[in-house]
């Protein structure tokens, strides 16, 4: 499993992560970021890309 955490104090809801892993991150109708906290190992590369492109560097993750 890949465990994902978004620091919501840092997150500015730009949604760049959504373009890298749209099944994991999305903006709701109010423009607020929602995300899945645990995904399969096969999503690791895309989660890593999402963390890379976050302007606020708010996304962390770990393999467990």
């Amino acid at each position: 499993m890949v465990t994902i955490n978004v620091d919501m104090d840092k997150c500015q809801h730009y949604g760049q992560c959504c373009f890298e892993a749209e099944d994991v991150f999305h903006l709701d109708d109010d423009g607020k970021l929602k995300y899945t906290k645990e995904v399969g190992d096969d999503r690791l590369a895309d989660v890593e890309s999402a963390a890379d492109v976050c302007p606020m560097q708010a996304i962390s993750f770990e393999l467990s």
């Binding site: 809801h13 949604g15 959504c18 373009f19 903006l27 709701d28 109708d29 109010d30 423009g31």
Partner: peptide, 10 residues
């Protein structure tokens, strides 16, 4: 202030 609506344009 319309961030969540830009995906279709992208």
């Amino acid at each position: 202030d319309r961030t969540s609506e830009l995906a279709p344009y992208r």
